Computed example of a mutant assay.
Amino acid sequence: MAFRIAQALSSIGKLALATAIGASLIAGDVAAQQKQPSPGSAKAIFGGVQLPTQGAPQPFGFYAKGCMAGAEALPTDGPNWQAMRLSRNRRWGNPAMLSTIEQLSRDAAKYDGWPGLLVGDIAQPRGGPMITGHASHQIGLDADIWLTPMPNFRMTAEQREALPFTTMLQKNAFLTINPNVWTPAHARLLMRAASYPQVERIFVNPAIKKKMCDTWTGDRTNLGKLRPEYGHDSHFHIRIKCPPGAANCKPQAPVVAGDGCDKSLAWWFSPAPWAKPKPPKPDAKPVKPREVMVSDLPKACQAVLDAPAVSSVRAATYGGPSAAEVLRAQPIDAPPAANDDELPDLGPVPDDKPAAQ
């Protein structure tokens, strides 16, 4: 596998050119994600809702096309985690997702030498498409965990907004792990998360996947759950299965058998992901892109938007401010923090390759 990847890398040409191409594509994705949606779009409508619905938790639709009812907020602080970027108001999720985060925070601290989780985006109060940053995270069953260890003090809201992301990649080297940043504890954390039966996939940068393939000497049964995906070099993305009894939740195709350290990984290091799409035929009718509307989502999502909000938000169990207190202190339209270099989560297509550029 290493030989195939080396061959693929050589076929790209100069590393500087490959890096420049990648930066250009990513910049285009960021610009597209940051474009302000029209007031009637699903992004604008779901992004403007501040509180979840009353009633039992229910996911509706698919990870990248849906919404949710009865969401709960992850407390801002727990024994082994701290929630980040509170102004985004995106720490809402299905209770099954929150339980998974809490379980990982405990187990990683107890068994893997990981001091605690910094938890990024989960979902909006009623899920749905986000104005910026993600294509998935719409039904409360996705969560981003930073690859930065939690500090040994409770950060202020301001510190949580300003703390920069730390990439695991080496500067000026195409898809290469930085040995001064990556540690064995990172590997143990990822494999701990992958060991849970409810975890469907964990998205990581292709370079991280290759590092795990080359160096992980423990049980490799769950290594196949680590799926390569650009934009995950400073955090990893946990996706859990549809909870039992969630009849309106659309599952993703199961991960294929094996550890994923084969030609499917070599593809990410080849010129293929950077290839330009074929030009349309001269007589082809141009397709004008349009924004996703609420009517494009499952029918239940309109009812989710119309449902009454909870009258009060459960206070944080472990001592931090409640979600309602954060909302009062941090308006949800606060500008992005400086140094916020998080890359957009493109939402993988079913074969786990990036969407066409």
Rank of each mutant, 00 (worst) to 15 (best):
R328A: 15
D214Q: 09
T167M: 06
T148Q: 11
P344L: 12
A300H: 14
K241Q: 05
A71C: 07
R314L: 15
P321L: 10
T76S: 13
R192M: 10
L305S: 09
H137P: 07
K299C: 03
A334R: 15
G40F: 03
E325Y: 02
A109Q: 13
C67N: 00
M168C: 03
A71H: 06
T76P: 01
N89F: 04
A20H: 15
G22R: 11
G231N: 04
A69F: 06
K353P: 13
A309K: 05
A194M: 05
A309Y: 06
N178E: 07
N94M: 13
W81E: 00
L98S: 06
P308D: 00
N339P: 08
P244I: 07
G140C: 12
I45S: 02
V255R: 07
K299Q: 09
P79Q: 14
A275E: 14
A257H: 04
G320T: 00
P57L: 07
L163H: 09
G258P: 00
A69M: 13
F60Q: 02
P289Q: 15
H237W: 00
E325H: 02
G120E: 11
D283F: 09
A300I: 05
L51C: 08
N172I: 13
S295C: 00
Q58P: 04
A20F: 08
P39E: 10
D219A: 08
A356Q: 13
H134R: 14
S136Y: 00
T156R: 01
A307V: 09
D29K: 06
A307L: 10
A300N: 01
G78C: 11
A324Y: 01
L98F: 06
W182E: 01
P37L: 04
W92H: 06
L9G: 01
G28H: 04
Q34K: 12
A275T: 10
W146E: 06
L226D: 01
G218V: 07
R227T: 14
P298N: 05
N180S: 15
I122T: 12
L51E: 07
N222Y: 07
P354S: 10
M1Y: 03
K285I: 06
V349K: 14
P228R: 00
P331L: 01
D340L: 04
P354K: 08
F203A: 11
Q36F: 07
K288N: 15
E200R: 15
K171L: 13
A73Y: 09
L226W: 01
I21N: 11
K225Q: 02
W146Y: 12
F60C: 02
K210S: 06
W268C: 07
M155W: 02
K250H: 14
T217V: 09
Q138M: 13
L169R: 00
F62R: 13
L297Q: 02
K43P: 09
I12C: 13
I240M: 04
D340F: 05
A69S: 14
P282F: 14
K209H: 02
A108E: 03
L74R: 00
R160G: 06
Q58Y: 05
G70W: 02
K281Q: 10
S105C: 04
G127Q: 01
